[in-house]
Amino acid sequence: QLNEKPLPEGWEMRFTVDGIPYFVDHNRRTTTYIDPRTGKSALDNGPQIAYVRD
């Protein structure tokens, strides 16, 4: 279940091809599976993935 609260300024939620949510921090140009609103991860110790700018 996804959090309904808005993401912090400069953050975006995207999904992997497998449908796993991850979070893009455009301020720091990093990505993470940890939801910045809750501190909880969509994966157990998930790796960071490459930042992609559209």
Rank of each mutant, 00 (worst) to 15 (best):
residue 52 V to M: 15
residue 19 G to M: 11
residue 40 K to D: 12
residue 14 R to L: 10
residue 37 R to Y: 00
residue 25 D to C: 01
residue 21 P to V: 10
residue 19 G to L: 06
residue 21 P to C: 10
residue 45 N to H: 09
residue 10 G to S: 04
residue 52 V to A: 14
residue 26 H to Q: 12
residue 4 E to D: 13
residue 23 F to H: 00
residue 47 P to S: 14
residue 2 L to M: 13
residue 52 V to G: 09
residue 44 D to P: 08
residue 15 F to T: 09
residue 21 P to H: 04
residue 4 E to P: 09
residue 19 G to A: 12
residue 24 V to Y: 02
residue 4 E to W: 02
residue 40 K to Y: 11
residue 21 P to S: 08
residue 51 Y to A: 14
residue 26 H to E: 09
residue 10 G to D: 04
residue 48 Q to C: 07
residue 23 F to E: 01
residue 35 D to K: 02
residue 23 F to N: 00
residue 41 S to E: 12
residue 48 Q to A: 15
residue 47 P to Q: 15
residue 8 P to Y: 02
residue 30 T to D: 07
residue 30 T to F: 15
residue 21 P to I: 10
residue 16 T to G: 07
residue 18 D to H: 09
residue 47 P to G: 13
residue 10 G to Q: 07
residue 54 D to C: 01
residue 22 Y to F: 04
residue 51 Y to Q: 15
residue 17 V to G: 06
residue 23 F to K: 01
residue 41 S to D: 09
residue 44 D to S: 10
residue 25 D to L: 01
residue 13 M to V: 08
residue 5 K to V: 11
residue 51 Y to H: 15
residue 34 I to M: 12
residue 45 N to A: 14
residue 28 R to C: 08
residue 54 D to A: 03
residue 19 G to W: 03
residue 30 T to K: 07
residue 36 P to L: 00
residue 24 V to K: 03
residue 39 G to R: 08
residue 50 A to S: 14
residue 35 D to H: 03
residue 32 T to W: 00
residue 18 D to M: 06
residue 7 L to T: 01
residue 24 V to H: 03
residue 33 Y to T: 04
residue 3 N to D: 14
residue 4 E to L: 10
residue 48 Q to E: 13
residue 40 K to S: 07
residue 18 D to E: 10
residue 8 P to M: 03
residue 38 T to I: 08
residue 4 E to M: 11
residue 32 T to H: 01
residue 46 G to D: 13
residue 31 T to H: 09
residue 14 R to I: 04
residue 14 R to M: 09
residue 37 R to V: 06
residue 34 I to K: 07
residue 6 P to V: 12
residue 9 E to N: 10
residue 1 Q to K: 15
residue 17 V to C: 07
residue 18 D to S: 10
residue 14 R to P: 00
residue 45 N to Y: 04
residue 50 A to Y: 02
residue 11 W to V: 08
residue 15 F to V: 12
residue 17 V to I: 10
residue 11 W to I: 11
residue 40 K to V: 14
residue 39 G to K: 07
residue 29 R to D: 07
residue 31 T to Q: 01
residue 46 G to W: 05
residue 51 Y to K: 15
residue 6 P to Y: 06
residue 6 P to S: 14
residue 12 E to F: 01
residue 21 P to F: 03
residue 25 D to T: 01
residue 42 A to T: 06
residue 45 N to C: 08
residue 3 N to E: 08
residue 9 E to W: 06
residue 45 N to I: 06
residue 2 L to F: 09
residue 45 N to K: 08
residue 9 E to A: 09
residue 43 L to W: 11
residue 48 Q to F: 08
residue 32 T to D: 02
residue 41 S to I: 04
residue 48 Q to G: 13
residue 26 H to W: 04
residue 22 Y to R: 01
residue 4 E to A: 05
residue 48 Q to K: 11
residue 49 I to L: 12
residue 15 F to I: 04
residue 32 T to L: 00
residue 43 L to I: 13
residue 14 R to T: 07
residue 18 D to K: 05
residue 39 G to I: 10
residue 43 L to F: 09
residue 38 T to Q: 14
residue 52 V to K: 12
residue 37 R to W: 03
residue 47 P to E: 06
residue 40 K to F: 10
residue 20 I to R: 10
residue 34 I to Q: 06
residue 12 E to S: 05
residue 46 G to E: 15
residue 52 V to C: 13
residue 9 E to C: 04
residue 3 N to Y: 10
residue 18 D to F: 04
residue 19 G to P: 00
residue 43 L to N: 14
residue 31 T to A: 06
residue 9 E to Y: 10
residue 32 T to I: 00
residue 11 W to N: 01
residue 10 G to V: 01
residue 47 P to K: 14
residue 1 Q to I: 15
residue 39 G to W: 08
residue 5 K to Y: 08
residue 38 T to P: 12
residue 51 Y to S: 14
residue 8 P to F: 01
residue 54 D to E: 12
residue 40 K to N: 13
residue 49 I to R: 14
residue 38 T to H: 10
residue 2 L to N: 13
residue 45 N to M: 10
residue 46 G to T: 12
residue 42 A to S: 13
residue 30 T to L: 15
residue 20 I to D: 15
residue 52 V to P: 14
residue 5 K to C: 14
residue 2 L to Y: 14
residue 37 R to Q: 05
residue 27 N to Y: 08
residue 23 F to G: 00
residue 3 N to C: 06
residue 23 F to A: 02
residue 21 P to Y: 06
residue 38 T to K: 11
residue 17 V to L: 10
residue 27 N to F: 05
residue 33 Y to R: 04
residue 29 R to W: 09
residue 42 A to Q: 12
residue 2 L to S: 10
residue 16 T to P: 02
residue 36 P to S: 00
residue 11 W to G: 01
residue 18 D to P: 07
residue 53 R to T: 11
residue 36 P to W: 00
residue 18 D to V: 05
residue 13 M to N: 10
residue 45 N to P: 14
residue 41 S to Q: 14
residue 41 S to K: 14
residue 17 V to N: 14
residue 46 G to S: 14
residue 20 I to G: 07
residue 47 P to N: 13
residue 7 L to F: 09
residue 7 L to R: 01
residue 37 R to F: 02
residue 45 N to E: 10
residue 15 F to C: 09
residue 54 D to F: 02
residue 24 V to S: 03
residue 5 K to S: 12
residue 28 R to I: 04
residue 8 P to E: 03
residue 21 P to E: 05
residue 6 P to T: 13
residue 28 R to F: 11
residue 44 D to K: 09
residue 32 T to Y: 00
residue 26 H to N: 05
residue 8 P to H: 00
residue 20 I to M: 10
residue 26 H to T: 06
residue 53 R to D: 15
residue 13 M to K: 15
residue 42 A to H: 05
residue 3 N to P: 03
residue 9 E to V: 09
residue 19 G to K: 13
residue 47 P to C: 05
residue 39 G to Q: 13
residue 16 T to C: 06
residue 47 P to W: 03
residue 5 K to L: 08
residue 4 E to H: 02
residue 49 I to S: 14
residue 33 Y to D: 03
residue 54 D to G: 04
residue 5 K to W: 08
residue 50 A to G: 11
residue 39 G to D: 15
residue 26 H to G: 05
residue 20 I to V: 13
residue 30 T to G: 06
residue 8 P to Q: 04
residue 45 N to R: 10
residue 5 K to T: 11
residue 19 G to C: 11
residue 46 G to Q: 07
residue 7 L to Y: 03
residue 37 R to C: 04
residue 53 R to V: 09
residue 36 P to I: 01
residue 48 Q to T: 15
residue 2 L to R: 02
residue 17 V to A: 13
residue 18 D to R: 09
